[in-house]
Design a protein around this nucleic acid. Structure first.
Lengths: 136, 136
DNA sequence: AAATATTCTGCAACTCTGTTGCAAGTTAGC
DNA sequence: GCTAACTTGCAACAGAGTTGCAGAATATTT
């Protein structure tokens, strides 16, 4: 897929099979993935450390973003072009307590919150846990 | 402090110095604490494992709740009486990117969100990162 | 197409976080 | 005070994440 290479190029990253594979794993599975998920999917081909570093690089370049979770950290693709300079996310994350999948609800935005004086918000993260449509 | 003993008793927990100390640490510092914070404060008196188990117990009994965070897990006191059966939290967490403290904004509630059909929400967690009044 | 500079990868080693089993110590209730 | 039930500390382990370094791969220049 040339699209993978393009994405990497746009973010000034060299094309390597590991990066292509990690990226395409994010694209194919659509939910948020942990390092462990990726290691499970690609671990035979790449070293643990390489996967960690790939995630870190993607994070810095704005290709993926962190998804907080009761039981750890996951990552999901940034939909709108985030950059090295600024991540901009205001969508909601939903974690299913039945199947365990976490997904970005791209269409739902976090409602505005009026903070008391003195608080300067920069970054919002809303996680909703419950049962997803598939498991319902 | 008898209040500490009372709190423990209410939740059917035996009075031990470790539990009293952990509880009073949460009461004195008012922000959310990680296991590491507690180990720093009490680590010379108690074993790491004991602190872990104390946190786990408090969590199950509804004395503290989890606070999600970019860089790990913290815990904070439940203000309204949560129980073993049900935790009920709808307040907002604010993490200061300058001093690193995370606090519960007890007075601010998470705004209602209208989820698409099929999603059954059970649990909300909103983390706002930015600069707090102290660091502003 | 070859040489070079730059960047990535794998390995080894390590740190930090969190868990489990078990024996010894402590608490609460009688 | 005695007993049953619970809690703690220790040791050992599992998992998550990081760092340094040498060798391999990529992009670039000629």
């Amino acid at each position: 897929m040339d699209q993978l290479r393009d994405t990497l190029k746009v973010h000034n990253l060299r094309t390597t099979t590991c990066r292509e594979d990690v990226l395409s794993t994010f694209i194919n599975r659509k939910n948020a993935l942990s390092h462990g998920d990726l290691e499970g999917a690609l671990g035979e081909n790449y070293d643990r450390v390489t996967i960690y570093r790939t995630l870190k690089t993607f994070l810095e370049k704005g290709i993926i973003h962190k998804v907080l979770d009761d039981e750890g950290l996951r990552y999901a693709l940034c939909s709108h072009s985030c950059s090295e300079e600024k991540h901009q996310h205001d969508h909601i994350h939903f974690k299913c307590s039945s199947c365990g999948e976490t997904n970005c609800l791209e269409n739902l935005h976090i409602p505005a919150v009026h903070l008391p004086d003195g608080y300067q918000p920069e970054n919002f993260n809303l996680l909703i846990q419950g049962v997803c449509p598939k498991c319902n």
